[in-house]
């Protein structure tokens, strides 16, 4: 029986090169297992082996992201492994982000199954847990003894194409996919256990977390609006006529940025709505009814506001569908900041 081939990614510390002072070292590849890789070996029981270990400095990876990804991907490709493992990174932030980034890249770009491990509060966990299976570990390297068998077990499942169990069963961080499994107790008994914990203010874990509704503290007011650059963002789906970016009418997977330099009024000849979530007749007739370009242009001329930002950003979103918007909202925010926008008028239908 041939053994499965695995490539393992670790940082300079676990590669026994050095601590923070060696974090700048570029990626290098060594044959066979190194450091934690040796611990993995005994849990593979001869069914799989680490054929190569890639060691990379955390600073170098994060500061040279594109180059680092390219370099490491190439090193992985040369080995043509059956599986890629990164970490575990425990609570080391940059190491966690590197593990998440590279295992996601190996999975999507090389089509090789990947696995990583980290502490749930590692920033890398939040960024990548829904993309790459991330085994839950403790917050320090002291948890290696527990992390390795859990990762090895999951690794063998992935290698053999076996069904991955629910996160609670196989010990990985919830990845947004609901999977069935049999609990030890029936539901009614679990409900009573949970209720008793809730009643005595002890921590309890809901089996289905509700979509979260967090809050952001309000930003300070604009001191002098007559000098402020104001941008328009809308979830009402206003786009140039013909919808050049093909923004979908519902649960849009993208957003549009459109230049309105020199546009004083939105007309039915040039603008419309791509939104499928409301009767489009009124917006198609006059898109100013959704984004008040006409008034803001006038105010810009009158000096009532400093400037109307020359781009507006549009998405399609129902008022209640919040979560999906997060990704492009972050991108829009980034653009607004780089354009030194001071305030935003966001309109929703």
């Amino acid at each position: 029986m041939s053994t499965y081939r695995i490539v393992h990614y670790i940082n300079q510390f676990f590669g026994q090169i050095g601590g923070e002072e060696q974090a700048h070292i570029p990626a290098e590849k060594r044959p066979g297992p190194v450091g934690p890789g040796l611990a993995f070996k005994q849990h593979f029981g001869g069914e799989a082996e680490i054929v190569a270990t890639i060691i990379c400095g955390d600073s170098w990876f994060n500061e040279n992201l594109d180059l680092a990804k390219k370099t490491v991907l190439e090193m992985v490709r040369e080995e043509a492994p059956d599986l890629f493992i990164a970490g575990p990174a425990f609570n080391a932030g940059r190491y966690g982000v590197a593990c998440g980034t590279i295992s996601d890249a190996v999975k999507t770009e090389l089509g090789i199954p990947s696995l990583t491990g980290m502490y749930e509060e590692n920033p890398g966990a939040d960024m990548f847990r829904t993309k790459v299976l991330t085994v839950a570990t403790s917050n320090s390297a002291a948890g290696m003894r527990k992390a390795v068998p859990a990762m090895a077990k999951l690794a063998l499942k992935l290698l053999k194409g076996e069904r991955v169990g629910a996160s609670a069963e196989d010990g990985y961080l919830p990845d947004g996919v609901r999977r069935n499994f049999f609990e030890k107790k029936r539901g009614s008994a679990r409900a009573i256990d949970m209720l008793l914990k809730k009643l005595s203010d002890k921590p309890f874990e809901t089996e289905y977390p509700m979509p979260s509704f967090d809050r952001v503290p309000p930003m300070p007011a604009i001191k002098d609006i007559t000098r402020a650059t104001i941008a328009i963002v809308t979830s009402g789906g206003i786009v140039p006529k013909g919808n050049p970016d093909h923004i979908e009418s519902s649960s849009a997977s993208k957003y549009g940025s459109y230049n309105i330099e020199g546009v004083n009024d939105l007309t039915s000849e040039s603008y419309e709505t791509a939104h499928g979530g409301y009767d489009p007749v009124y917006a198609n007739k006059d898109a100013d009814r959704v984004i008040p370009v006409d008034v803001l242009r006038q105010y810009e001329k009158e000096g009532k506001i400093g400037k109307l930002h020359n781009w507006f950003y549009t998405t399609v979103g129902n008022g209640t569908a919040v979560a999906s918007a997060k990704k492009y909202a972050d991108e829009i925010a980034e653009k607004l900041i780089s354009h030194e926008v001071d305030a935003v008028i966001l309109t929703s239908t």
């Binding site: 519902s250 649960s251 979530g277 129902n318 008022g319 209640t320 569908a321």
Partner: peptide, 13 residues
Amino acid sequence: SLDLIERAMEVIN
């Protein structure tokens, strides 16, 4: 009403 119809439409979609 709006919340209910939007959630229902999500299920339908």
